[in-house]
Amino acid sequence: MDANIVWHEEAVTAAEREQQNGHPGFVLWFTGLSGSGKSTLANAVDRYFHEHGYQSYVLDGDNVRHGLNQDLGFSPEDREENIRRIGEVAHLFVKAGTIVSTAFISPYESDRAKARALLPEGRFIEVFVDCPLETCEERDPKGLYKKARAGEIPSFTGINAPYEPPRQPEVTLKTGEGTGEENVKELVDKLTPFL
C-alpha cells in the first residue's frame, strides 16, 4: 500500500453506532453450493431483522457482480478477489453498527478465513448452508448445473471446481431437510446470544 495513504479515524465510533442501533454489528457469512438456499435464507433473516427493528443488509453474490465486482470472472484468482472485496465491504458495514448477511458460494476456506480475520472476535458468524449436491442440482434455480454438466460453464463449483466446506462453522443449516421457515427459525434461535 502507498505510504501516503493513511487511515482516517471516524468522528462517530462503531460503539456509538451500535449503542444508537441497540445491537452489535456483525457478519452472517452464508456459504454453500449454488442452489443450497444461501440467498433465500439471507433475505428471510433480513426480513426478520427489519421487522424486529435491527439495522441489517444483504450482500448477494449475483447482485454484487452486477456492480462492484463486474470486472471479475470465475478463475481461482478472481474468486479470491471477489471474496476479498466482499470481506472489506462487510467490515465497513460492521463498523457502521449494521448486521450484514453475505450470500456467496465462497468456495475456498482460506478466503473465508481472511474475511473473518478482518473482524473482531465474535463478529463473523459463518453459516454453512449444507445441502447435498444432488438436491442443489434438482433445484437448479438458475439452470447453471445443467449448463455446467453440458460443458457450457467451466469451473462451476461442485461440478468441475472445488468447494471446501467449513470445518467449524458457527452455524450449520441443513437446507435439504425441513422447510425454509424452519431453517430461519433455527438460525434466529442460534443468533440469540449475538442480538
Rank of each mutant, 00 (worst) to 15 (best):
D2G: 15
A3T: 09
A3M: 07
A3W: 13
A3V: 12
N4P: 00
I5R: 03
V6Q: 15
W7R: 13
W7H: 09
H8M: 14
E9M: 01
E10W: 10
V12Y: 09
E16Y: 06
R17M: 08
R17L: 05
Q19S: 08
Q20M: 15
N21W: 14
G22S: 06
P24H: 08
F26N: 05
L28T: 05
T31H: 14
T31A: 15
L33Q: 01
L33A: 07
S34K: 05
S34I: 01
S34Q: 10
G35L: 03
G35I: 00
G37K: 02
A44E: 08
V45W: 00
V45R: 00
H52E: 12
G53Q: 06
G53E: 13
G53I: 03
G53S: 07
Y54T: 04
Q55H: 13
Y57K: 01
V58K: 00
L59Q: 02
D60S: 01
H66Y: 15
L68I: 13
L68K: 05
N69K: 02
Q70K: 15
D71W: 10
L72T: 00
F74P: 07
S75I: 07
R79Q: 12
E80I: 12
R85L: 06
G87R: 01
A90I: 05
A90M: 02
L92N: 13
F93R: 00
K95S: 15
I99P: 00
V100E: 00
A103M: 02
A103H: 08
A103L: 11
I105P: 01
S106L: 10
Y108H: 08
Y108F: 08
E109Q: 15
S110G: 11
D111M: 08
R112F: 10
R112Y: 13
K114H: 12
L118P: 08
L118S: 10
L119Q: 03
L119V: 05
L119F: 12
P120M: 01
R123Q: 03
I125N: 00
E126K: 07
E126H: 13
V127H: 01
V127D: 05
D130P: 12
D130N: 14
P132K: 06
L133P: 12
E134C: 13
T135L: 11
C136N: 07
C136R: 00
E137S: 12
E137C: 11
E138P: 11
E138W: 14
E138C: 09
P141D: 11
K142W: 01
G143N: 13
Y145F: 10
K146D: 14
A148Q: 02
A148K: 00
R149I: 14
P154W: 04
P154L: 01
P154K: 07
S155T: 07
S155I: 04
A161Q: 10
A161T: 05
Y163H: 10
Y163I: 02
P166I: 03
P166N: 10
R167G: 14
E170V: 08
E170P: 03
E170W: 04
T172Y: 11
L173R: 05
L173N: 03
L173Y: 02
T175A: 06
T175P: 14
T175E: 11
T179I: 06
E182C: 07
E186R: 13
L187S: 05
D189R: 03
L191E: 02
L191N: 02
T192C: 06
P193I: 02
P193C: 12
F194G: 00
L195R: 11
